[in-house]
């Protein structure tokens, strides 16, 4: 089976965010990452589209996405001082939603930068 090629793909493993990577993939696994460094290659090749983990866990038990979202919303809403933290391994679009979440909750917002 011939592999599909994505040219000028972006790698976000480190802060360099190289945007000249050539990815060869079969929609399930990335087989080659040309131009990527050792760190980037390892990162691209170690991720697959397989379903390795349950969709969601609530109190350690498997749950549906809807149940998990409702549980998360309830916990965050009940809290007096919720904390929204992290945001380094995610997209800017998701980060913007996180700011909206902290704003709506009247909570705390922080990223890896403060460590």
């Amino acid at each position: 089976m011939s592999l599909q090629v994505i040219e000028n793909a972006t790698c976000t493993f480190c802060g360099c965010v190289c945007d000249d990577i050539e990815l060869h993939h079969d929609e399930f696994r990335i087989h080659k990452a040309h131009h990527a460094c050792v760190l980037g290659t390892a990162w691209f090749l170690n991720h697959t589209a397989e379903k390795k983990y349950p969709v969601a866990l609530v109190d350690g038990r498997e749950a549906t996405l809807d149940e998990a979202i409702e549980a998360a919303a309830t916990y965050l809403h009940e809290a007096d001082m919720p904390l929204v933290y992290g945001m380094s391994n995610t997209t800017c679009e998701a980060q913007k939603e996180c700011v909206a979440l902290a704003d709506q909750l009247g909570g705390l917002l922080d990223s890896h930068t403060s460590l």
Binding site: A72, M81, P82, L83, V84, Y85, G86, M87, S88, D110
Partner: peptide, 20 residues
Amino acid sequence: FSTVDVLVRGDCDAAFIIGA
């Protein structure tokens, strides 16, 4: 308001962790 300080003092009563 930085996370380590908030957590060590026990100031927050819920946490939402994403991409970390």
